[in-house]
């Protein structure tokens, strides 16, 4: 089952928030490595269909899984049905995430709760449902997409930062619980990555960030996907509970 290279042939993966941005790149990358990939999304049917089409054009196989990660019953039902039908679930990538930026004075309780619900609680729900399958088979790869913001913070992102720091803490605890079952749990914390989410930042803020990146460029979704592939593969069997910082030298952890 686990191989000693990056080949994921015969394996089954679920990528949450997989229709756009980093999630899309991860879905495509895992597919190129041979995995059957379920692309989870919550709203954007068009983008999801485009991603699946691109995945299939690349010679891959997969499907769409539309459910909100913050709804436990729906997460459970979807993952149960999917893993039963495919007979396995090897890889879970918790990528679904949103932001509702506001400075403290203006951040409404619902902005706080919404971001925590999707980013942190949603990942927990998916891990819980996926672990039922992985524990049975005594193999699994759980990957969490965190953010540099979970470590260094940013004004206006108290909710987002808290959700990402929480994900990293959850990663360590679940890694300890699941290590005996050959299930690894790791996080990837990207720095500044060009996606729709980051392009929404004011140009001045974007330029300031770029000026501080030692690599001299923003990261790409594909940069993240490559590291996720490593974590999803048999090559990373002894790596668990870690957060890999992927930021062009901006921050070392």
């Amino acid at each position: 089952m686990p191989t000693d290279d990056l080949d994921l042939s015969g394996q089954v993966a679920l990528v949450t928030g997989g229709s756009r941005g980093i999630g899309r790149a991860i879905a495509l990358r895992l597919s190129q490595a041979g995995a059957y990939v379920a692309i989870n999304y919550s709203a954007d049917d068009q983008a999801a269909k485009r991603t699946l089409l691109d995945l299939e054009r690349g010679g891959g196989q997969g499907e769409l899984q539309k459910f909100p990660v913050e709804n436990f019953a729906k997460v459970q039902d979807a993952i149960k049905e999917f893993s039963k039908r495919k007979g396995r679930l090897d890889i879970l990538v918790n990528n679904a995430g949103i932001s509702r930026d506001q400075v403290l004075a203006r951040m409404k309780p619902e902005d706080w709760h919404r971001v925590l619900a999707v980013n942190l609680t949603g990942a927990f729900y998916c891990c819980r449902a996926a672990a039922r399958v992985m524990v049975r088979r005594r193999y699994g790869r759980i990957i969490v997409i965190s953010s540099i913001i979970g470590r260094i913070g940013r004004a206006g992102q108290a909710n987002y930062a808290a959700s990402k720091a929480g994900l990293e803490a959850m990663t360590r605890s679940l890694a300890l619980e699941l290590a005996g079952r050959q299930i690894t749990v790791n996080a990837v914390a990207p720095g500044y990555i060009e996606t729709e989410m980051t392009l929404a930042l004011p140009p001045k803020v974007r330029q300031e960030i770029l000026d501080h990146i030692p690599s001299g460029r923003a990261g790409t979704a594909e940069d993240v996907a490559g590291v996720v592939l490593f974590l999803a593969s048999g090559l990373s069997a002894y790596l668990t509970g870690q957060t890999l910082h992927l930021n062009g030298g901006l921050y070392f952890g």
């Binding site: 039922r132 524990v135 049975r136 619980e177 699941l178 005996g180 079952r181």
Partner: peptide, 13 residues
């Protein structure tokens, strides 16, 4: 408790 959980999952099957 993890062993027990795994056992329950195996018994389910």
């Amino acid at each position: 408790s993890m062993d027990l959980w795994e056992l329950v999952l195996v018994m389910e099957d």
